[in-house]
Design a protein around this nucleic acid. Sequence first.
DNA 1: CGTACCTTTCGACTACCATCGAAATATCGA
DNA 2: TCGATATTTCGATGGTAGTCGAAAGGTACG
Lengths: 114, 114
Amino acid sequence: MMDESTAVASLAALAQPMRLRVFRALVGAGPAGLTPGVLSALLDVPPSTLSFHLKGLARAGLVAPVREGRHLHYRPALGQMDALLGYLTDHCCEAGAAEGCAIRPREPACCDTR
Amino acid sequence: MMDESTAVASLAALAQPMRLRVFRALVGAGPAGLTPGVLSALLDVPPSTLSFHLKGLARAGLVAPVREGRHLHYRPALGQMDALLGYLTDHCCEAGAAEGCAIRPREPACCDTR
DNA sequence: CGTACCTTTCGACTACCATCGAAATATCGA
DNA sequence: TCGATATTTCGATGGTAGTCGAAAGGTACG
């Protein structure tokens, strides 16, 4: 279960154009993730700036670095993202307003029906 | 469909303890929302500080003020929140990784099955 | 073992955010 | 209209985030 400070940290990490692009690029790349070099070229950002933002995402628990031979891979932490979505949708539709709620519910079973 | 700058603005609005509490309090209160006075007492925050944060949430499109007689009501914009969740989960499970994806899918139909 | 490449740290600058009291503004009841 | 209550704006202050070049730190190949 996610607490407030973790949620704030995760949201703050994503609340920045460059970090949001980085995170989405990693999500789109799949579980293997990407190296800082590839990300730097892909997003056209200086390595030092990228490193700064990757560190921010890692500190928030949204990505994790993994050594892979000579290269480093940053992988998206989808479990953390899922917990964040759960926190944001908590208590929705509880005040007798389920019929008018605009939040689409999330399935408990993960990807089972795909 | 949500674009990057809207997503960043929404995330930034939520990436602050007081604003996150305010938003969650409004979500929990249901579509009718709450007045600044009630929120100020509920969250134990000075009116001026609360107003500052409500304005931030409103500018991000996450809440909307509605005059209701002599009182003002701030209502949560659940449609905007739903769009944000959609933006954050976009492109998940697309890189041949559906079986290992930790993001629970969201139902297209809103609250139909409840 | 040394060289080359990849990645991070450091330093400095600019800009914006959070906080709150005091004062101004707005709305309604009498 | 007048007064009371509710809400916002203003001003000042302290703190934190984003940017990038230059230099340092690691890692693997030859």
